[in-house]
Amino acid sequence: MLENLAQEMQAKVQVMIRVTPGVEAHTHEYIRTAQTDSKFGIGISDPLLLEVVAQLRNSTVLCLTGFHCHIGSQILEEEPFGLAVERMMGLMSKVGKELGVCVTELNMGGGIGIRYTSADTPLTPQQVVRHITDQVTAVAQREGLPLPALYVEPGRAIVGEAGLTLYRIGSLKEVPGIRHYLSIDGGMSDNPRPALYQAVYEAMLVEKANQEPTIKVHLAGKHCETGDILIKDLLLPPVEPGDILAVFATGAYNYSMASHYNRTPKPAMVLVSRQGVFMLEERETYEDLVRQDRIPMHLRS
Rank of each mutant, 00 (worst) to 15 (best):
M1F: 10
L2Q: 11
N4A: 15
L5R: 08
A6S: 13
E8L: 10
M9F: 12
A11R: 11
A11Y: 06
V15Q: 03
R18D: 15
G22E: 06
H26N: 14
F40K: 04
S45P: 01
S45Y: 14
V52C: 09
V52I: 09
L56I: 05
R57L: 01
I71C: 03
Q74Y: 14
L76G: 04
L76M: 14
E77F: 05
R87K: 15
L99S: 02
T104G: 13
T104C: 14
E105Q: 15
E105R: 13
G109E: 04
G109Q: 00
G111K: 05
R115Y: 01
A119N: 11
A119C: 10
T124D: 06
Q127E: 14
T133P: 01
Q135A: 15
A140N: 11
A140T: 01
Q141N: 09
P146V: 08
Y151H: 09
E153S: 08
V159N: 05
E161F: 01
E161A: 06
A162H: 15
T165N: 06
T165S: 07
L166Q: 02
L166S: 07
R168H: 07
R168D: 02
K173Q: 15
K173P: 03
E174R: 10
I178E: 10
H180I: 00
L182G: 01
D190E: 13
P192Q: 13
A199P: 04
V200F: 00
A209C: 07
A209P: 01
P213S: 08
T214I: 04
T214S: 07
I215A: 01
K216D: 05
V217D: 00
H223K: 09
I229M: 09
L230T: 07
L230S: 03
I231A: 02
L235T: 12
P237H: 06
G242S: 05
D243W: 02
A249N: 14
G251I: 08
Y253K: 06
Y255S: 09
A258M: 12
N262T: 12
N262S: 14
M269P: 00
V272A: 07
S273C: 08
V277E: 06
F278W: 07
F278S: 10
L280N: 06
E282C: 04
R283Y: 04
E287G: 05
E287S: 13
D288E: 07
Q292D: 14
R294L: 12
P296Q: 12
H298I: 08
R300L: 11
S301H: 15
